[in-house]
Amino acid sequence: MTKGKFYSVGTGPGDPKLLTVAALETIENADVIAVPDSGNGKNAVLEIVTEYVGEKNILYCPMAMTRDKEKLARCHEDSCKMLQAELDGGKNVAFLTLGDPSVYSTTMYVHNMLKEKGYSTKMIPGVTSFCAAAAALDLSLCEGGQALHILPASYGGTEEGLALDGNKVLMKSGKSILKVKKFANMENNEVYAVERCGMEGEKIHTSLDTIDETTGYFCVMIVKEKEQ
């Protein structure tokens, strides 16, 4: 039997209107829809595509929200085995991920594992959260010769990253939001943020003043250099 194909599908930041035609076609043509499952209740990525999934089988792949390397490795291995079972049965699988699969996505761990095992894989790009956040704020991310740096804010190195020339996008701020806020509060920067961009409960921040410890995981900060 011919093995199925694995697709990592970017669903955009949260608004179903930002789903691409390619993403919709891949979802419609897939035999199985896979989603990351953190065990924390509602599945954000599944809510985006609910009306397009129909009666397809949903495969919930364990993806713990932790930095424990051993726990993560077990989750990735368990998810990979679940996906292999479907692929070996000749089924095409679409693994859905928020934003774009190439930017800090959960799907790429199993994508690369399956690719190394010889399975056919393909990435379907999606609108990134930081591009959607910039649009919500009605501002550009970079112009002319400006550099743009994408920083995983909760992983350390934020202060060093903010010292680089150019504009910065800070993703995965999470519980470190106040620390990030401290580093970003410099005279030569303008700081913006969007929480839950395109999702229910979206909040737009046009200054540091309204950003506090209640700011959630789905928050993108944009730090722009002031024009000299």
Rank of each mutant, 00 (worst) to 15 (best):
K179L: 06
L162H: 04
L164C: 07
D31G: 15
S79L: 08
F130E: 12
I48N: 06
N92D: 14
Y192D: 14
Q146F: 03
L170H: 00
A134K: 01
N57Y: 10
G39D: 04
M113K: 03
I48C: 06
N185W: 00
M199N: 10
P62I: 06
Q228A: 12
A34E: 04
L170A: 01
A23M: 14
K175A: 08
C131K: 00
C131L: 14
I33M: 13
D100V: 09
T121F: 12
S102A: 14
Q228G: 11
L137P: 13
A184K: 02
K226V: 10
N185Q: 14
T66E: 01
L208Y: 01
L170G: 01
P152Y: 09
D212L: 08
A34R: 11
K42N: 11
E51R: 12
E77D: 14
S129W: 07
H76N: 09
R196V: 10
M1A: 15
N92G: 11
P62N: 07
L208V: 13
D31F: 04
I211V: 10
H149Q: 04
N167T: 02
C61S: 09
L19V: 08
E202L: 10
N112G: 02
A153I: 03
M113Q: 01
K56L: 08
I48F: 08
T50K: 13
V223G: 13
L164T: 01
P36Y: 05
L114A: 02
